[in-house]
Design a protein around this nucleic acid. Structure first.
Lengths: 145, 145
DNA sequence: TTTTAAATTTATATTCATTACAATTATGAT
DNA sequence: ATCATAATTGTAATGAATATAAATTTAAAA
């Protein structure tokens, strides 16, 4: 676990961010729990180890991380913002029942887009919605009842 | 224009929605101006012809339309919700400078997605961000100055 | 046409995620 | 240890969206 912590610290340093306790803990949480958590989830989880933690700090820290591309903000719907420490190109699936977000692999370069000839593209998002396997099974069981 | 209005009315009737003045005007606006407007844009534009119009009515009407698939809500970022009367499969480009949203054609079926084998998919979104041709030109001119 | 109930719209208040801001606390260099 | 700077906190403010109840409109029955 110490090795992990060291890598977190060096990652922050590389991004030009001084590794305060709050920052290290939040980044560590995101790297360990790749569940696209909300601010509230992070705040509640870390409050036990950092009792003085404030929601504002979580917001500030996440925005700082996003600005330096350490993490990505995931705008997936009109609910709370999600945060993702997995920054490589990938898609997001949101289950409309359990509201969990799942990563999936997708070849962005294979996207055949017309009508955007003179547009400068900075990034792309691929979002998929539906029911995850877990909830699909539960729903079926409900129907049988 | 009357023909257009009649088609709006019949479209509402088909969806099981009684064609009140507010509803007809809002749908007509969306079909005539495919600019993915916000609630505020719609409210301001229609206020001159319907002086008693309220923002709440615009919200209610748009949600009603979305529920019956007459229009689509466009969740593209953390700004105000956008509304789209173009309901066929297509992608959305948002210019980060002028904030305009542009439609583009994209073959959703060609998407090569892995890791979602047992997921039930209801719909997909493809979002692209960057600078539109108009703003790209302006930016270049600025640089020259 | 009048009546009347239901549907629609409105105005206001409320919610809730997020940000702004000022005060407090912690940190690191001298 | 001191001091300036950075980081964090708590509270207030913002703003989009919704809830609610009152007012208005509509449409059907009498």
């Amino acid at each position: 676990m110490n090795i992990n912590l060291k890598s977190i610290v060096s990652k922050l340093r590389k991004a030009g961010i001084s590794p305060s306790i709050v920052r290290v803990q939040i980044l560590k949480y995101l790297e360990t729990n790749k569940i696209h958590p909300t601010v509230d989830t992070i705040y509640k989880k870390l409050s036990s180890s950092i009792p003085t933690l404030s929601r504002t700090s979580v917001y500030n820290t996440l925005n700082l991380f996003a600005q330096t591309n350490l993490i990505k903000k995931v705008y997936i719907d009109d609910e709370e913002m999600r945060y993702d420490a997995f920054v490589e190109e990938h898609g997001h699936f949101k289950c409309s029942i359990c509201e969990k977000i799942f990563d999936f692999d997708v070849d962005f370069s294979a996207l055949k887009i017309s009508n955007l000839e003179n547009f400068q593209i900075t990034h792309k998002d691929i979002l998929v919605f539906g029911t995850c396997p877990n909830c699909a099974v539960k729903t079926k069981k409900e129907e049988v009842k």
